[in-house]
């Protein structure tokens, strides 16, 4: 499995006329799960847009595995908030879209995806159309598509943001268990502080736009993490620490 650290140094970027990132710096260790939380519209998604090359960078640098990223080639596997499943592809075909786009023949792509269907809770739904899948399933298909690309860093933009509270909890539990097995380098954007504390080793709290890292909070809760831990005082302390940074002026 391909994984590496990520270091963002002094990133400044504009989205059209909007100044979205201002001297943004953070560091993610290889195999570390990090989360970005921040006020809505602060530039969380713009960070990913700058990393994937969707918007240009005015200043600063990005390093993956200590190597500067120049052409936004194949360092990142990005999952948009909506999941962006294609309605004319079945669940399995959507899962293989990413690797097919990078040149894997369809048959080989299917062979690579099939062993994961069970762990992603998609067995028996390989040939279902996206509109026949539940919200949670759709996001799992999108996550599988992202993971299969086998890129050093996974960028997940609010993968569970549109799900109902119950489904979201069980998805977080599922993702934690899955991550324990694979230890991908993950950057997760979320507006759910509890989700960030539950899943991440390190949380970056963003300021208002233009975004910069206001505080870095290390989450030293033991792993494996289970939903019961949300009730513990340590968990509550982490959560309130992040919240107090978020709402401090």
């Amino acid at each position: 499995m391909n994984r590496a650290g990520l270091e963002v140094k002094g990133l400044t970027a504009h989205w059209d006329d909007l100044h979205v990132l201002d001297d943004l710096s953070f560091k993610v260790e290889p195999g570390q799960f990090t989360a970005i939380v921040g006020p809505s519209g602060c530039g969380k998604s713009s960070t990913f847009a700058a990393l994937t090359g969707e918007i240009g960078i005015d200043k600063g640098s990005v390093e993956v595995g200590s190597v500067p990223v120049v052409n936004h080639g194949n360092e990142f596997a990005w999952m948009p908030q909506s999941g962006a499943l294609l309605p004319w592809r079945t669940a399995l075909q959507n899962a293989t879209l990413g690797i097919e786009l990078t040149g894997t023949p369809r048959a080989e792509a299917s062979d690579r995806a099939k062993p994961y269907m069970d762990a992603f809770g998609l067995s028996g739904f390989e040939d279902s159309w996206p509109h026949q899948l539940s919200g949670g399933m759709s996001q799992r298909v999108a996550l599988l598509r992202t993971v299969l690309m086998d890129r050093p860093v996974l960028l997940l933009d609010e993968p569970f943001g549109a799900l109902d509270a119950l489904t979201r909890r069980s998805m977080q539990d599922w993702l934690e268990r899955l991550w324990e097995q694979h230890r991908w380098t993950v950057v997760l954007i979320t507006h759910d502080v509890r989700e960030a504390v539950f899943l991440a080793d390190r949380v970056f709290v963003y300021s208002d736009r233009p975004a910069a890292v206001k505080a870095t909070v290390e989450i030293d809760l033991p792993r494996p993490r289970r939903l019961e831990m949300i009730q513990t005082p340590e968990f509550a302390r982490m959560e309130s620490e992040i919240l107090s940074v978020l709402f401090s002026v």
């Binding site: 847009a49 994937t52 090359g53 969707e54 936004h72 080639g73 194949n74 990142f76 990005w78 948009p80 908030q81 909506s82 962006a84 294609l86 004319w88 879209l97 990413g98 786009l101 990078t102 690309m149």
Partner: peptide, 25 residues
Amino acid sequence: DPDAGALFRSTGAGWWRTFRGLRLP
């Protein structure tokens, strides 16, 4: 879908792949 468009770009897909795989369908 603009998100799907950005997804195609993020994989490095060129115009033809994006047209055939996303815009035409």
